[in-house]
């Protein structure tokens, strides 16, 4: 074995060891690496009342109510991850991207009645990039209701030529 070869084997062995150690550490820490908890995680193991944490999920279709609370804009909506759902109340201005069917992450506490009182609401963007006329065409033709879920498979629209048809 030449010296170069020995050095290469040594570097590779260190790499394997380091990679294994990092994988173990990350899987042990995965709960604290997660940025938010989901409604179904709350259903199975509710955080203590009064503890501040982040809740994340999709804003349920048809659940968003906006109203005024003491002259300030306020909102109530339900956040779901498909299996569980949590009602969220928030006083403040929602971000631009916030809408039904969109992901969101809220920081706040769980009230005794099970409502999540949010101090801060962030909108989560999904991985789709779509011009307005394509989105309008999909909505008008009934292929997509943004409030109900993600868009249809990308191959059906990402090369679509928007047609300016009168109707």
């Amino acid at each position: 074995m030449t010296r170069k070869r020995r050095r290469l084997v040594l570097v590779l062995a260190c790499g394997v060891g380091l990679g294994a150690a990092a994988a173990l550490a990350l899987s042990a820490l995965s709960d604290s690496v997660a940025f938010f908890v989901t409604p179904s995680q709350i259903a199975s193991k509710a955080p203590a009342p009064g503890r501040t944490f982040r809740l994340g999920g999709l804003v349920e279709a048809g659940s968003l109510q906006k109203f005024m609370d003491d002259g300030k804009p306020a909102a109530r909506f339900r956040v779901t991850d498909g299996t569980g759902a949590v009602t969220v109340s928030f006083v403040g201005i929602l971000p631009d991207l916030f809408r039904e069917g969109q992901g969101m992450v809220a920081l706040g506490t769980l009230a005794p009645d099970g409502t999540f009182r949010a101090q801060e609401v962030l909108a989560k963007h999904d991985e789709t990039y779509m011009p307005k006329d394509i989105a309008d065409a999909l909505k008008k033709s009934g292929h997509w209701n943004p409030a109900a879920g993600p868009p249809p498979p990308a191959s059906t629209w990402n090369t679509l030529v928007p047609k300016k048809l009168g109707g």
Binding site: E127, T128, Y129, M130, I134, P151, A154, S155, N158
Partner: peptide, 14 residues
């Protein structure tokens, strides 16, 4: 957000 351009599927970008 997760990746838009992946090896496994069509890019979810116009």
């Amino acid at each position: 957000q997760p990746a838009t351009i992946t090896l496994t599927g069509a890019p979810t970008m116009y």
